[in-house]
């Protein structure tokens, strides 16, 4: 089976189970403090994305089901720990599957990272998206975990490139190369986080535009199923240097908008999410950010529209 046909089949499987597809428009990350606004005013939004971990209780699953009745919905997990050598937490996976079956999301995604480890004292799950060494062994581990999740959910998932502060000495593959190999091995898609490229490359020394080009050169355009945009903080360190922290706590910065425009010009319109997690602003600020992304998507759609033939006299 080719990658293209796998993705088409996986997407149509989800849609045939009643999932509302995510449009190639700008959506908004929905956080708990904004639920009342959404419930009471049904604001304009092309689609919403949530972290499923916040809805794994009956009361909040009820709330999310109400949102899913009115908006296309994407589940963006942070808890699968796809890079863990100790495997996938079966209990977590079954909870994710139950929520997926209930709200029927158009997309499901998680990160190229790990959080869980098996210590002599017992299992440990650190609430952070920790970096992986990009080795053949790690690729096999992530591929096996992605296979397990896709088999359990009966659908394709998207894997997001992480924001990182460090690189492992043992890495033998580039990040884009690693993700491209993962899509070939598993048929998963890619969630391209443009802000994460800016953050990771600036923290490790390099050119974000070159890194983005690597992604777009190495990963088939059809495999890129979603894009994330967010703000980040630039924080001074005790050493006098600065670090970019992916805090999702501000508007998207100009450098990230420029990278996004480049990506969309090359890929064409893609579902694009505005993520905002800390110092959460009023909902209309998120709508403004989504409108800015939508403007770029609309321009790309116009560029790709067939030019009408001149009318014959």
């Amino acid at each position: 089976m080719t990658l293209h046909s796998f993705i088409a089949n996986a997407s149509s499987d989800a849609v045939s189970r009643g999932a509302r597809p995510i449009p190639a428009e700008a959506g908004i990350g929905l956080r708990l403090p904004h639920h009342a606004v959404v419930r009471q005013t049904a604001p304009a939004a092309a689609w919403f994305e949530v972290h499923p971990e916040n809805y794994m209780t009956p009361g909040l699953a009820d709330e999310l089901a109400g949102v899913a009745e009115r908006y296309p919905l994407s589940l963006h997990a942070v808890g699968l720990s796809l890079g863990s050598a100790c495997g996938i937490d079966a209990d977590y996976l079954s909870r994710l599957k139950a929520l997926e079956r209930r709200v029927r999301p158009g997309l499901v995604s998680d990160h190229l990272s790990w959080s869980a480890a098996s210590l002599p004292t017992g299992p440990l799950h650190l609430p952070d998206l920790l970096p992986l060494p990009y080795t053949e062994e790690a690729l096999a581990v992530v591929a096996a975990n992605v296979d397990r999740v896709q088999d359990a959910l009966g659908r394709q998932i998207l894997i997001e490139n992480p924001s990182t502060y460090l690189r492992f000495a043992g890495s033998v593959l580039g990040e884009a190369q690693f993700l491209a190999a993962l899509t070939r091995a598993t048929g998963c898609g890619v969630l391209l986080d443009i802000n994460n490229i800016e953050v990771a490359v600036m923290n490790q020394g390099g050119d974000p535009a070159r890194a983005l080009a690597d992604y777009l050169d190495l990963i088939p355009a059809a495999a890129i199923g979603e894009i994330h945009l967010a703000g980040h903080a630039v924080c001074p360190l005790d050493s006098g240097r600065a670090v970019r922290v992916d805090d999702h706590g501000s508007r998207v910065c100009p450098e990230v908008w420029a990278l996004y425009e480049t990506a969309i010009r090359r890929l064409g319109p893609r579902p694009t999410l505005i993520e905002w997690d800390t110092a959460l602003p009023a909902f209309d600020v998120l709508q403004e950010e989504a409108a800015a992304a939508q403007f770029i998507l609309d321009l790309a759609a116009m560029d790709r529209a067939p030019v009408p033939e001149a009318a014959h006299a």
């Binding site: 060494p133 460090l166 690189r167 490790q204 240097r241 670090v243």
Partner: peptide, 13 residues
């Protein structure tokens, strides 16, 4: 020793 030194030092990261 597992982490490559970059603009952000290993201990800082």
């Amino acid at each position: 020793d597992q982490i490559v030194a970059g603009p952000v030092a290993a201990q800082e990261a």
